Every structure is written in C-alpha cells, then in structure tokens.
Simulated assay, not measured.
Amino acid sequence: MGMFSGVVQTLDNSLQYASAKNRAISNNIANADTPGYKAKNVDFKNVLQQEMTSPQAAKRTRPEHIPFSQSNTNQSFSTTTNNTTYNHNGNSVDVDKEMADLAKNQIYYQALVDRLNGKLSSLKTAIGGGS
C-alpha cells in the first residue's frame, strides 16, 4: 500500500489531463484566425474510453520472462471538431467558448495543485514530527 494510496498518482494524471486540455485550448485561440483550422478538444470521456479499451500493460517481474511491447503512453487524446464552422474562412474556433473553457480549466488545474500541495504539506509535517 502506498503512502497516499495512489492519491498523488491520480493527481499527477489529472494534472497531465488538465495540461493537455490547456494546450488544446491555447492552440485553438492562437489559430482563431487561421483559415480552415478546426478546433480541437481534449475530452475526459474519450481519454477514459481509450484507456479502458486498450490492452492492460503487462509487467515483467523477472528478466527471464518474455518482454512485452511498450505502448506509447504519451499519446494525444485530442479530438477535432469537423462539422462546425464559425467563420467565413472555414475556421471552427468559437473564441468566447474557448475563453470560458480556458477559465474553467485553469480553476480545475489550480484546485489540483492546491490538493497536491496539501498532500505534500502533510508529508512535510509528518517528517518534521508535527512541527
């Protein structure tokens, strides 16, 4: 059993998701005037579905065991919106929606960071003997 029962790992995964979402939103805003650009989105449901349908990773416990192929865990989970156009140039970026999504994602990210800081502060207090 881990020190925080996997909480730190879950927070880390959540921070990675929030970072990926922030990158997608930032790219959308940066390309708001690019002709033909289609908005991208990182959706938790898509990430969860891909993780649940992908084969579970096997772990070698001894060097004599047959090695397993490593899957790419640093893959992108963004989806592209192809069926919507907001501008006359074929661009599908709605800047108002992107700015609202950015604000929401920043609040989510900050909440995760605060929670992680709380866990690390608890660890620091335990190491310091409660002082």
Rank of each mutant, 00 (worst) to 15 (best):
S78E: 11
M52V: 12
Q110Y: 11
E64G: 02
N117W: 02
Q70Y: 15
L48D: 07
A30M: 05
L112Q: 04
K45R: 13
S14Q: 12
T53L: 02
S78Y: 08
N22C: 08
N82W: 14
F4W: 01
I25L: 04
A100M: 15
N74I: 11
Y109E: 02
K97L: 09
V113Y: 08
Q9A: 13
T125D: 14
S54L: 07
P55E: 03
V47W: 06
D43Y: 06
A111K: 13
N28S: 11
Q106L: 06
N74P: 05
S76R: 12
N83F: 07
A103G: 05
Y108P: 02
L11T: 00
A126D: 10
Y37R: 06
S122K: 13
Q56L: 05
A103W: 04
A20E: 09
L120V: 08
A24W: 00
N46D: 08
V47G: 02
S122D: 13
S26H: 13
T61V: 04
Y109S: 06
S5P: 00
S92D: 01
A30W: 09
I127D: 00
A20V: 08
G6Y: 04
D114M: 10
T80D: 08
A57P: 00
D43C: 07
N46F: 05
S76K: 09
M3N: 12
N105Q: 13
D33S: 14
L120G: 01
A58S: 12
G90C: 05
S121G: 13
R115D: 00
N72V: 08
N28D: 12
S54I: 02
L102F: 10
G6M: 06
L123I: 11
N41R: 15
K40T: 11
N27V: 13
T53H: 04
A111G: 13
G128P: 00
S71M: 09
N91Q: 07
R23M: 14
K119C: 03
V8L: 15
D101H: 03
N82E: 13
D101W: 03
K124Y: 12
N83H: 14
A30L: 08
L120F: 10
N117G: 06
Q110P: 06
Q110G: 14
N105T: 07
R23T: 15
A32H: 07
Q16F: 09
N31Y: 08
Y17S: 08
S131N: 11
D96P: 13
Q49R: 14
K38Q: 14
T10R: 10
H65G: 12
A111Y: 13
Y108C: 10
L120A: 07
H65L: 13
V7F: 12
K21S: 00
G129A: 08
T85Q: 06
G36K: 10
F4I: 02
I127N: 01
A126K: 10
I127V: 15
T61D: 08
Y37C: 03
D101F: 01
N13D: 03
S14V: 03
M3S: 09
L11E: 02
S14E: 05
M52W: 02
K104E: 14
N105W: 04
S78I: 01
F77T: 01
H88A: 12
Y86G: 03
E51G: 04
A20H: 06
N91T: 14
L120H: 05
F68G: 00
F68N: 03
D43L: 01
A126L: 09
A39K: 08
T79Q: 11
T53S: 06
S78N: 09
